[in-house]
Computed example of a mutant assay.
Amino acid sequence: MAYTFDISDNRRIVEALKTGDEETFKEVYTAFCAPLRHYATTILQNEQAAYEVVQDVFTAVWLNRKRLDAAKPLRNYLLRAVHNNSLRLLKYDEARRRREISAAAELHGGWDQEKEVPPPNWPLLFLGFLNRAAKCC
């Protein structure tokens, strides 16, 4: 179902994608990949991460192509998907960084016993867990 590609003909593009037209998908990828990577790079400040976000978005578009809505602009969908996935990656990276800092602080300085006191019966709770686990197996 390949046809002369016109980026402004959203309805024909989406309908072609829904039928599995690989040529149309290649044309959409060629038209939008570079601008989407640039947009993701401005958010992430990392070209490799931006590349991966854009690849993930195009993979999701292809896998879920039957659910695309021809009434909504594909360009807007791609921009929103790249935006959301970039922010999600930043959030994930920030959480991972905080866990790493916390783990490093525990390794190098232990916990501040005045601020973080373990439960008084934690050895008993742990032994109880081990006993229950031993009975299971």
Rank of each mutant, 00 (worst) to 15 (best):
M1W: 03
M1A: 06
M1H: 07
A2Q: 13
A2T: 15
Y3R: 14
F5G: 04
F5Y: 13
I7T: 07
S8A: 09
N10F: 06
R11H: 13
R11N: 12
R11Q: 15
R12W: 10
V14L: 12
V14W: 07
E15F: 09
T19W: 04
G20H: 03
D21S: 05
D21E: 06
E22I: 12
E23Y: 08
E23S: 13
E23D: 14
T24S: 07
F25I: 10
E27G: 04
V28A: 10
T30P: 00
F32V: 05
F32Q: 06
A34C: 06
A34V: 15
A34Y: 12
P35F: 02
L36N: 04
R37D: 00
R37V: 13
R37F: 03
Y39I: 07
A40T: 06
T41V: 07
T41S: 14
T41A: 13
T42Q: 14
L44M: 11
L44S: 08
N46R: 13
E47G: 12
E47A: 15
Q48D: 15
Q48V: 15
E52G: 08
V53A: 04
Q55I: 10
Q55H: 12
Q55W: 04
D56P: 04
V57Q: 10
T59K: 10
A60P: 02
V61S: 09
V61A: 14
L63Y: 06
L63K: 13
N64Y: 07
K66W: 02
K66H: 05
R67G: 05
L68N: 09
A70K: 14
A71P: 01
A71F: 01
K72E: 06
P73T: 07
R75E: 08
R75G: 04
N76M: 09
N76I: 11
L79P: 00
V82R: 02
V82H: 03
H83G: 00
N84I: 08
L87A: 00
L87K: 10
R88L: 06
L89G: 01
K91E: 12
E94Q: 13
A95D: 09
A95T: 13
A95P: 04
R96I: 04
R97C: 01
R97P: 00
R98C: 01
R99F: 00
R99T: 01
E100I: 08
S102T: 08
A104F: 01
A104L: 09
E106W: 01
E106N: 08
L107G: 02
H108T: 00
G109F: 03
D112H: 01
D112A: 02
D112L: 01
D112C: 01
Q113A: 10
Q113G: 02
Q113N: 04
E114H: 00
P118E: 02
P119F: 09
N121R: 12
W122F: 14
W122C: 03
W122M: 09
L124A: 14
L124T: 13
L124K: 10
L125M: 11
L127D: 14
L127N: 11
L127T: 07
G128R: 11
G128I: 08
G128C: 05
F129M: 11
F129K: 10
K135M: 14
C136D: 15
